[in-house]
Design a protein around this nucleic acid. Sequence first.
DNA 1: GCTCCTGAGTTTGAAAAGCAAACCGACTAG
DNA 2: CTAGTCGGTTTGCTTTTCAAACTCAGGAGC
Lengths: 140, 140
Amino acid sequence: MAPLTPAAGTTPRPCTIAHALDLLGERWALLVVRELFWGNHRFADIARHTGAPRDVLSARLRRLVDAGVIEKRRYSDRPPRDAYHLTQAGRDLAPVLAALTQWSRQHLPTDERRPNVAHHDHEIDPVVEVRCRTCGERVA
Amino acid sequence: MAPLTPAAGTTPRPCTIAHALDLLGERWALLVVRELFWGNHRFADIARHTGAPRDVLSARLRRLVDAGVIEKRRYSDRPPRDAYHLTQAGRDLAPVLAALTQWSRQHLPTDERRPNVAHHDHEIDPVVEVRCRTCGERVA
DNA sequence: GCTCCTGAGTTTGAAAAGCAAACCGACTAG
DNA sequence: CTAGTCGGTTTGCTTTTCAAACTCAGGAGC
């Protein structure tokens, strides 16, 4: 997504964020991940719940598999059918989704206030904290 | 970015994440925010450091201003020149960028390991924690 | 005044990505 | 033999992105 050949006259930062967005910033990519967190693993379910066109979804799934964020798992040999599951790298995207959720609730209007993940017997309203790894102190 | 009129046969989730990505998932949007965190506020600087085409950048800045994530500030009347600054909503995107940074470092190869923000006299290597607002417990 | 220069955009025309709907292959159920 | 399901691919069109050129408002040097 980020340009591999920088535009003339620009010197894009070599940046971890840009690198991540190159993969995850593509349209539908994070919604696919969200849907897998929700427990929907089949192509048709992901398409339906995200709203992504099937061809685009097909391309995204392929790219996410190649990047190691998700993996294909055969759940039926006859007929041959595959489902998609998060890898550890994919599960590690939870903080990104949580941060987006928190921000959206804080700053976007008329959102449904529905929490998105079950925790113990209640539901999670996530709080995302950023700390400094070196000193452990919370960062603003 | 997310479809306003759901595709036929799909029922996209009414979702805080999708809502946020509708704004922030557009190409270059989060890189603009990153650049403002880095302290570059002028059009030409943002264009150069992100690599975004000027017309797209112009459109993104306008949309982010409309959404209240950033604001225009006149820094010169003659000639008329405006710079862009984060609003509180924009600053509150820090956890999103931190989460992306952390994920990128964990899972993407050959990233520059450069920390991205100064903290006290050292630099931050951010740790993002997700907790349950209700019980305070850390969530996996 | 005249000629460059800077900064913040807009315009232009072509290339890439996204879209919806139709189609395909491999089956299963009736 | 027909209809339906699932996991995609193909098709034809629309929208977005892109790079380069251009505009507008002034500033600097001469």
